[in-house]
Amino acid sequence: MRLLGRLPGVGERTAQRLAFFLLRAPRDYVTALGGSISELQERVHPCARCGNYTEEEACAICTDERRDAGVVCVVGTVQDLMAIERTGRFPGRYHVLGALLAPLDGVGPEDLPIPALLERIGDGVREVVVATPPTVEGEATALYLAQALKGSNRTACVRVTRIASGVQYGGDLEYADQVTLGRALDGRREIE
């Protein structure tokens, strides 16, 4: 119960419920679950190209020939990659940074795998979509990436774009906070 209680979202009572569930569950199921958990870190590792999780050397997205290799979406975490994949709107490939610049916590460019990204972007990439979150850390990372890409001879011609941010779809402007609404106005675009 102590170990189960360390899982995210699992408190003391939920840990107890899970423990009793496992005690009563079929032995095959408990064995399979235990095996999967113990194999997880041995078999699943970051993709050598993009940092997504995979059991192979390169992940399913990097090896999918139907994906546009000329467009790379930079995200902070694999969870963010999965969120974008769920939209079904992004045809390109990804690059997972694994962390974001944090001006308030002293996490600077040296702490991020930026050189690996720059190395990769030089190879026939037309556009880099920076999809870091609309937070101070996400904005700092986006600004730095744009500077780094524009400042390098190999990547200076690459188009660098940022995902839009602003009011929620289906939301009410009246209830939108000042920061969100201000950013939405800053990022306004012409209606085609």
Binding site: P103, L104, V136, E139, A140, L143, Q147, Q178, V179, G182
Partner: peptide, 24 residues
Amino acid sequence: EVLEPNLGVSKQLVSMGQAGAALE
């Protein structure tokens, strides 16, 4: 509630760094 968003701070990396240093 936000009184002054100071959105311009987040538009330059050096501004963010200096603001972060001030808060620290």
